[in-house]
């Protein structure tokens, strides 16, 4: 919930596309702009204070909470969301691993977790289990108890070892 309407338009680069945002409230978060102005509802919101990770996106290559980014301040940045992870109708290997290992229940935390796991395996393809825990500690899941999520992540890391 942010201040009055700002008539000024601005542009964002999301998943490689330059998009125009108009009519967003003053000071609106990237989360609300993605969802309410750009129709990219794959990024979820569950706390709006950076404590759940549901809104994780990549901002210039860094995993961040979109709820803590003021959208109008990142007009020059490269933003990647869940929608851009794999071509329409296909799944990335992280997404496939989540499907195959039962890491999805209600699925609300899933897009944020998939962004976090994708970032993790890019940066640390040989992460051990404790590193996985440290790197994913910002993404709350209320359904799974994380067991199948860890199984999915470890399957990806093991793949790398082969």
């Amino acid at each position: 919930m942010t201040g009055s309407k700002d008539d000024r338009e601005f542009e964002l680069t999301v998943n490689g596309k330059r998009l125009t945002v108009s009519g967003a409230p003053v000071g609106a978060s990237l989360l609300s702009v993605l969802r309410d102005n750009l129709g990219l509802t794959g990024t979820k919101g569950a706390c709006e204070e950076g404590e759940c990770g549901s809104c994780s996106v990549m901002l210039d290559g860094n995993l961040v909470c979109a709820c803590l980014v003021m959208a109008s301040t990142v007009t020059e940045a490269s933003i990647a969301t869940i929608e851009g992870l794999a071509p329409s109708g296909t799944l990335s290997r992280v997404q496939e691993a989540f499907v195959d290992h039962g890491a999805v229940q209600c699925g609300f935390c899933t897009p944020g977790l998939i962004m976090a796991v994708s970032d993790l395996i890019d940066r640390q393809p040989n992460a051990d289990r404790e590193t996985i825990r440290e790197e994913l500690a910002g993404n709350l899941c209320r359904c799974t108890g994380y067991g199948r999520i860890i199984a999915a992540v470890e399957s990806l890391l093991n793949e790398g070892d082969l």
């Binding site: 919930m1 942010t2 201040g3 009055s4 003053v26 000071g27 978060s29 709006e48 204070e49 950076g50 709820c67 803590l68 980014v69 003021m70 109008s72 301040t73 990142v74 020059e76």
Partner: peptide, 29 residues
């Protein structure tokens, strides 16, 4: 003043609305 946003955006999201004439000075660049 906005840098990482991890405190200020929490305040804004929770209703500390940005006023009409208020200026945001973003330090990211």
């Amino acid at each position: 003043i906005l840098a990482g946003g991890t405190d200020e955006m929490v305040r804004i999201n929770h209703g500390a609305a940005v006023g009409e004439g208020e200026e945001i000075v973003c330090l990211n660049n």
